[in-house]
Design a protein around this nucleic acid. Structure first.
Length: 287
DNA sequence: AGGGAAACCCGAACGC
DNA sequence: TGCGTTCGGGTTTCCC
């Protein structure tokens, strides 16, 4: 669910100046809200203890208060609020969302942690399934150190990607979803990238030649950039305002025609994950 | 090292 | 209609 493009979309909303998709009316959630950059955190309320990974509630509420939000960045699927003294890290996991609301609104049922901001605003971490986690740390590297390269970082070259692929003997699908291998891909964008690259999800990473590795990295970048351009995908009941779900090539399109060749899309399970692919465009043998 | 399974969760979808 | 069951998805942990 929230993967790199969704997290990046939320990051941009939080910075302010959010724009509606072309031809669509403004929405009711964060996109018509002012940004939170430069605002002081007046107080914090932890509504579900386990959402807070560190520190414990009382210390968190004490330490986060009276710090100002100086910057908002992203690393993989982590959203990072840079405060005066510390960093506030969010991982949305399955169902997390960050909303900017008027401070007087009653708390929605699935709000797990809220920060009261100056200007009568509130930053709310909403997470129906309670998988999301929040950290307040002085050094974000303690949390982020094991993440693989950023796929959209232009300093990350196809040659480096090929070397990484050859260093493993793993199926492409679970390898691409491994955040220590490459950061930011989840189930949706992995299936989409593999289809665009015409590579079978069960293909073994070690067997990719330079050309296929370059094609795969290019495909990863294309689907991530399209996801960001469309402001992410809104799937299940979690509405985030994006419309990439209307442009999926294979994800959750089992039985529908492949956009390339018309063959019905197949669904298999790989590493406990639903995996969608075209059996004609994505051959396991020579591609 | 890599793969499989379970755990964490709960709303939605499905079956009866 | 309403109940019970299954599913799915990101990550960690544990076991083979």
């Amino acid at each position: 669910m929230p993967e790199l493009p969704e997290v990046e979309t939320i990051r941009r909303w939080l910075l302010g100046g959010g724009e509606a998709l072309p031809g669509q009316p403004p929405q009711h959630t964060v996109r018509d809200r002012p940004g939170i950059l430069g605002r002081e955190i007046l107080a914090a309320r932890v509504l579900w203890e386990r959402t807070l990974a560190a520190p414990h509630t009382a210390e968190f509420e004490r330490r986060v208060a009276h710090q100002t939000i100086r910057d908002i960045t992203r690393r993989g699927k982590f959203l990072i609020l840079h405060l005066d003294q510390e960093k506030l890290l969010f991982h949305l996991r399955m169902s997390g969302d960050l909303l900017v609301e008027d401070a007087w609104l009653p708390l929605a049922p699935h709000h797990r942690l809220v920060l009261e901001l100056e200007g009568s605003l509130r930053l709310a971490f909403n997470d129906p399934r309670k998988f999301g986690r929040v950290w307040l740390v002085s050094d974000p590297q303690t949390i982020l150190a094991n993440l693989g390269p950023e796929p959209l970082d232009e300093r990350f070259t196809p040659e480096q990607f090929h070397t990484l692929l050859r260093a493993h003997h793993r199926q492409l699908k679970p390898l691409l979803m491994d955040q220590t291998f490459i950061a930011g891909l989840g189930n949706i964008y992995t299936d989409e990238a593999l289809h665009l690259a015409r590579l079978h999800p069960l293909m073994i990473s070690h067997t990719l030649d330079q050309e296929k590795a370059a094609r795969l990295l290019d495909s990863i970048r294309q689907v991530l950039e399209e996801g960001i351009r469309r402001q992410g995908a809104s799937i299940d009941w979690v509405y985030r305002g994006g419309d990439f779900q209307n442009h999926f090539r294979v994800y959750q399109r089992t039985g529908e025609p492949c956009p390339n060749c018309g063959t019905p899309i197949q669904r298999i399970v790989v590493g406990q994950r639903g995996t969608h692919f075209c059996p004609v465009c994505q051959k396991l043998e020579a591609g």
